[in-house]
Simulated scan of single mutants.
Amino acid sequence: MEPVEALRSIEIALRLVIKEVLGSEDWLQAKGAPERERLEERQAEEAKRRDGAVVSSDLIDYTETYHLTGIVERNWDRFQPAFKDKARTLAYFGVLGDVRNSIAHSRDLVPFERDLLSGIAGHFRNQISIFRGHHTPSSAYYPLIESVVDNFGREGVEGPTFLQDDLPRLNVGDVLRFSGRAFDARKKGVVWEFLVGSVHAPLGGQGPPVVATGDTVEFEYSIREEDVSEFFVVGVRIRTEGKFHRNRDFHPYDDIRGFNYAVNPPD
């Protein structure tokens, strides 16, 4: 795993476990958490810089690595069930602190640093996925989507997509781009499928097309005339090539996220 990707993977995992342990809103009141006002300033700054994208509304996405490690360290009793060994975890945090600035400023790491960071990323992802599996026991058997983000910066939702606000307006011929990350405890190989018209069943009843394979993927989709609608629904879901799946409908799958868009009629 490349250093930038490894660091990003670690930050995603830490944000997931912090929200899992402390609550999606209550984490801001935890020891070591940054001030809400400072995070809101960063959110506003990003919105100004990225006026062509929808920036995240989740303030934890504006935290730095040292914020995340500080929250875990200063609230260790709450996080011990996830990380188990405090001395080892803090040693890993020390490595992150040593290399983070080099990565942020595009300075190369030596081979052992790259390998060490990649190993830490894998270890943390495994620990946190196993811990979250205690709340979702099926994750020990089936892969889970950690995140799916479109080129507008929007995260796919688990529930009904019609609850999404401020839908991006698209034109026929526009290209949607997605990046996804999944965790597969049994390492059977993750297959990513793309559906339009419904997050559960593709248009025409055909099997959903496979767009990518692997734990970390990128893929794109070009908007067609058939997609014109004020509520154009996109489903991104995963499965393995195994015999058994978390959901066994006409096209079995293991996890899914949805997006809504508005697609303009052509002139």
Rank of each mutant, 00 (worst) to 15 (best):
Arg257Glu: 06
Pro3Ala: 05
Leu116Asp: 08
Glu45Arg: 13
Ala30Glu: 06
Lys84Pro: 05
Arg38Trp: 04
Met1Asn: 08
Phe162Arg: 12
Glu226Leu: 05
Lys19Asn: 11
Val72Gly: 09
Arg42Val: 00
Asn264Ser: 14
Trp192Arg: 03
Gly197Asp: 14
Lys84Asn: 07
Ala185Arg: 08
Gly119Arg: 07
Ser9Asn: 15
Phe152Met: 08
Phe250His: 12
Ser229Lys: 09
Asn75Arg: 02
Phe250Ala: 10
Glu37Asp: 11
Val172Gln: 10
Leu203Asn: 13
Leu28Asn: 03
Ser118Glu: 15
Leu28Lys: 07
Tyr221Leu: 05
Glu218Val: 14
Pro160Gln: 11
Thr63Phe: 01
Lys188Phe: 03
Ala182Leu: 08
Gly214His: 02
Leu39Asn: 03
Met1Tyr: 02
Arg246Pro: 01
Val211Pro: 09
Asp174Leu: 02
Leu176Gln: 07
Trp27Val: 00
Glu35Trp: 00
Asp267Cys: 06
Ala87Gln: 15
Glu11Tyr: 01
Val234Arg: 05
Tyr66His: 09
Gly94His: 04
Ile18Phe: 04
Leu170Glu: 11
Asn171Thr: 08
Phe162Thr: 07
Ser56Glu: 10
His251Tyr: 15
Leu167Glu: 14
Gly70Pro: 05
Asp61Arg: 07
Gln164Gly: 11
Asn171Pro: 01
Thr161Pro: 08
Tyr66Leu: 08
Lys31Leu: 11
Asp174Val: 02
His105Thr: 09
Ser179Arg: 13
Phe79Tyr: 12
Phe259Asp: 07
Leu16Thr: 03
Trp76Ser: 09
Tyr141Pro: 00
His200Tyr: 04
Ala53Glu: 15
Glu64Arg: 10
Arg181Tyr: 08
Phe183Val: 02
Arg248Cys: 03
Glu64Asn: 10
Val110Ile: 15
Lys19Trp: 00
Phe250Cys: 04
Asp249Leu: 04
Asp98Ile: 05
Ser57Gly: 08
Gly159Lys: 02
Ile71His: 07
Arg78Gly: 04
Pro111Arg: 15
Glu113Gly: 10
Glu73Asp: 13
Glu73Cys: 04
His200Phe: 07
Pro3Ile: 03
Phe79Ser: 10
Ala6Thr: 00
Glu155Pro: 00
Leu144Trp: 02
Gly242Asp: 12
Asp85Phe: 06
Lys187His: 14
Ser229Thr: 08
Ala91Leu: 09
His134Gly: 12
